[in-house]
Amino acid sequence: MKTDELIAMLSAEPSPVPRRAAARRIGSSLALGTGAALVLMLATLGVRPDWQQAMGWPMFWVKLAFPLAVAAAGFVATERLARPGVEIGGAWIGVALSVVVLWLLALAVWLGAAGDERAGLVWGSTWRTCAATIGLMAVPVFVASMVALRGLAPTQSAMAGAAAGALAGGAGAAVYALHCPELAAPFLAVWYVAGMALPVLAGAALGPLLLRW
């Protein structure tokens, strides 16, 4: 087939192209995946029993706001990396800044605590399961956003996979936070960050395999 014939073929019967396809598809994946993660959490773990009381505590909201900030930055990064020739811009800074702010808060709490309390602030009572459960809660958004990326055009596949991982990790951690009994910033600084790093690493590793077009 000559190139002119290919051009004639492609331009016959064109249909109007939807606008902002990347943001809409990744947004749908986020909504769908977060819904699935919520169902998974409610079915297997349940919301923490004292949630009404917990809603009055500032740390409960910090624990929710931190992963949501990571998810928001991850969304911007994923949406940009899904479109050829668009620079990722400051989106990574949003992820890094969320983590750094949490670490500073954790450091302040840790330094302010008496020596014999410090270990408890880091280990809490659920450190064994926290990171892995966050990784599990991230799976629905991770799968949905990788599917969305396969219908878009990421040219940096490892970066795009990692960004989708940050989106999924943030969303998964926010869902898990509704169940999690921990409130100490040092605990979040270690185990929540570790839990969210799992899908980021998975995305960076799987991106080059799954996101080629």
Partner: peptide
């Protein structure tokens, strides 16, 4: 050309 046609929704 084929790739740009298939991915034209990403512009």
């Amino acid at each position: 050309l084929l790739a740009m046609h298939n991915q034209r929704h990403t512009y």
